[in-house]
Amino acid sequence: MASKNTTKDIITLRGSSAIVSEFFGYAANSILYNRGVYPEESFVKVKKYGLPMLLTEDENVKSFITNLTAQLSEWLEAGKLQRIVLVIMSKSTGEVLERWNFSIETDKEAVEKGVSREKSDKEIMREIQAIMRQIASSITYLPCLDEQCVFDVLAYTDNDVEVPFTWIESDPKLIANPQMVKLHAFDTKIHKVDTLVSYKNDEWDEE
């Protein structure tokens, strides 16, 4: 009953961008940890979204993710970001093994007219929490990554976006005939983020 009485929080474009880019930072850390791209001991536990989350302590990775989220929030505020993809590839062959796909729908009115929306922070946090739980549990169905892997981040932006200094145009790094699992979505009323993981088909399953 009490929750019904809580007032809804005002969400601005800037605030929403901050929520989404922060979410991506934590999600990327969680994926790198859970998929074993970096060793377990290079992560520390922190509390976020009401869950114990893991953050990398590797200085290079840390600065990479910090620069990344800064750029993402810039694009999000301009409403130019359509999708973010975290790609996990084999280190030796460069073959793409997993694609963590975060599709973003931006409220055009909020970008063009600066309209703000209402949604409680608690509700957004609950939605993000569900996604984080799903990422953590994804190891139960995703194929084992036996080899050493590296990661890459792709951003699908509008065509008129100027390419920043540390970014280059790239191919989409697709997986041929992938398996797909749709995860939960979250919505700040300004940005709607749909999560989907596609991964390389395990040949043994088809036999």
Partner: peptide
């Protein structure tokens, strides 16, 4: 759409 990659 344009696909960009952060220089890793």
């Amino acid at each position: 759409t344009k696909v960009l990659r952060m220089v890793n």
